[in-house]
């Protein structure tokens, strides 16, 4: 019964860590509720929820700052926080773009970056951007803090590298250097508030006619948000152009593993991912 689930609402990390240290069976962390409240209401996995740790009002996790070329985004920064942030617009404008596309206002006001990361859906809108950006996640708990590269955080379908007594604290992202770009596109059924069918993010710069520092990640085309290393390798050091883009598209097709589901077919996702890749590369 939903009414039987105990909730501990905390206001500081110390209080949260004290709850985590007790290792209650079936502990789930609640942030803005845009995913978990839907799952609870639909009774998805309800029997596995023994206790809710409500961290929504832990204000020390709600921040967005740019300092010395590093953008730090607290786990409880909402999409509204991201799209209003001058630091995000200066350091990584794609993160403001995705925040504006992730849902409508009511979702942007409650959904958090940390929730998107920890829910770990292969369709999570921010995840390709975080991976392509080269984000590092800082996680913490009663045993201390550690750092995990974004592409190593998503270990299997909806499974993360977080231990049972750990919280995501923040993402740290290297700001774009002069000449660098990070471009992103999500394909859904409508512009506002739709779950994506395929999404792709590309970070790179073109130096003396050659791609450098290429990082590419894709959503909805594998059990996890996927760093596309073969596609990166196909582009790195070569020049932009139709032949290079075709080679990159072939590499992408070889490393993604889309499935048929109720939202799209695998064949559709393959074609869209390739089209979006070529479209994004043409922007360089």
């Amino acid at each position: 019964m939903i009414a039987d689930i105990p909730v501990t609402s905390v206001r500081s990390l110390d209080e949260a860590y004290a709850v985590l240290a007790r290792r209650a069976a079936g502990l789930r962390v609640l942030a803005g509720g845009t995913d978990l409240m839907v799952q609870i209401q639909a009774r998805v996995g309800l029997e596995r929820i023994g206790h809710i740790l409500d961290i929504w009002k832990v204000s020390e996790l709600r921040h967005v700052t740019l300092d010395g070329g590093t953008l730090r985004v607290g786990a409880l920064a909402t999409y509204t926080d991201l799209l209003r942030s001058e630091a995000v617009r200066a350091a990584l404008p794609a993160l403001a773009q995705v925040a504006r596309e992730v849902g409508a206002w009511a979702i942007q006001n409650r959904g958090t970056l940390g929730g998107n990361v920890c829910n770990a859906s292969p369709a999570g809108d921010t995840l390709p951007i975080l991976i392509a950006a080269g984000a590092t996640f800082v996680v913490g708990g009663p045993r201390g803090e550690r750092r995990i590269a974004a592409e190593e955080f998503f270990v299997a379908y909806r499974k993360t590298a977080l231990a049972a007594d750990e919280l995501l604290l923040r993402a740290e992202l290297p700001a774009l250097a002069p000449g660098e770009r990070l471009v992103y596109r999500k394909v859904g059924t409508r512009r506002a508030q739709s779950i994506s069918r395929a999404s792709l993010a590309v970070r790179a710069r073109v130096e003396a006619g050659a791609f450098r520092g290429v990082r590419i990640a894709a959503g909805c085309v594998a059990p996890v948000p996927l760093r596309c290393r073969a596609t990166e390798a196909a582009l790195e050091g070569g020049g932009p152009g139709a032949a290079a883009f075709a080679a990159a598209r072939a590499a992408l097709d070889g490393e993604i593993r889309p499935i048929d589901d109720l939202r799209a077919t695998a064949a559709y996702r393959r074609r869209v991912a390739g089209n979006v890749l070529e479209q994004l590369l043409a922007a360089f």
Binding site: S9, M37, Q41, N109
Partner: peptide, 15 residues
């Protein structure tokens, strides 16, 4: 002050 969906807000967060 912010628009929300009341179906997604638990009572614990409306305190």
């Amino acid at each position: 002050g912010e628009l929300v969906n009341a179906c997604l807000v638990p009572a614990s967060q409306a305190q």
